[in-house]
């Protein structure tokens, strides 16, 4: 039971991490291999702001906002030539360019903040949930993730912006013919995904300290969840995140961290080979 709760709590954060990645793919047909690096950068910026004496809440919010701004800047600069390409060329150059970006960010963070950690541990006794004691940080992280995901799904369903996003995912030309500007929507979604990645740094910081080297692992986790949920499928990312979170928790409990990671990778490979459109049957 405790394992299950832990898994769901972690899984919600995985969903949060993957949902931005999958939306970017759905909208622009590009993959962002620097997604986790946005989270790592947020962690470092947040930690530094706290170090110099800003209030924790303000630091964290600013860091997330900076991550969103960075993502937006990347979309406006590096991704522009990528969007000019089409089909496989576009995917390929997005992979190479964002891989370069990932290494660029990694290098900066590891060079200038090798030991900085974002630690938002919540003090106090554990919550008891259905007889299972849960650390406060974990519960808060799960709640934050769940609320943000809920709001996101709602906004996508009912707002004009959300409808426009979903329309581009389904048919970009059709959306253009309705007066929707795909490149502007892409930019807003890129910024959103930067903010969501940053938020994952925060929720991770609530459960365990997170530092400069976390970017690569987070990118890979995001990729796994995105692939298992189906590239470009928001609902798929939500379901796959929670599912893999539970798998992660159960496996770490039984076979250890290293083999768990291997298992998740193998699941991703299996899904690509057996069901490339993802485990969820739905169009978006």
């Amino acid at each position: 039971m405790a394992v299950l709760f832990d898994g769901v709590a972690f899984g919600l954060q995985l969903s949060l991490l993957a949902v931005g990645l999958t939306m970017i793919y759905g909208l622009g047909g590009v993959l962002n291999l620097a997604h986790g690096q946005f989270a790592a950068a947020t962690a470092i910026i947040g930690a530094r702001l706290i170090e110099v004496g800003f209030p924790v809440a303000l630091s964290v919010i600013s860091a997330v906002a900076i991550s969103a701004g960075l993502a937006m800047a990347v979309d406006a600069t590096l991704m522009r030539p990528v969007y000019r390409l089409h089909g496989e060329d576009r995917v390929l150059s997005s992979l190479l360019v964002t891989l370069g970006l990932a290494f660029a960010i990694d290098g900066l963070l590891i060079r200038f903040a090798p030991f900085t950690l974002l630690n938002l541990a919540v003090p106090g006794p554990a919550f008891v949930l259905l007889g299972v004691p849960m650390r406060r940080g974990v519960v808060v992280a799960a709640l934050v993730a769940a609320v943000v995901l809920g709001v996101l799904v709602l906004v996508l369903r009912v707002s004009r912006w959300g409808r426009a996003v979903r329309s581009i995912i389904q048919d970009e030309e059709g959306a253009t013919l309705c007066g929707i500007d795909p490149s502007r929507m892409r930019r807003s979604v890129f910024a959103l995904s930067g903010a969501l990645a940053g938020l994952v740094a925060v929720t991770q910081g609530l459960t365990a300290p997170i530092g400069a080297t976390s970017g690569r692992d987070l990118t890979v986790l995001a990729l796994i969840v995105t692939v298992v949920g189906g590239l470009g499928r928001v609902s798929g990312a939500l379901v796959a995140g929670v599912l893999l979170g539970v798998v992660h928790a159960v496996a770490s409990h039984t076979i250890g961290a290293v083999l768990t990671f291997v298992l998740l990778l193998l699941v991703a490979i299996a899904v690509i080979l057996l069901r490339p459109s993802g485990i969820v049957r739905s169009a978006v």
Binding site: R166, Q170, D171, E173, G174, L177, S282, A283, V284
Partner: peptide, 11 residues
Amino acid sequence: VPAERRLFPAL
């Protein structure tokens, strides 16, 4: 209105 319609099939 294109001949291939370009609707949003899942909406």
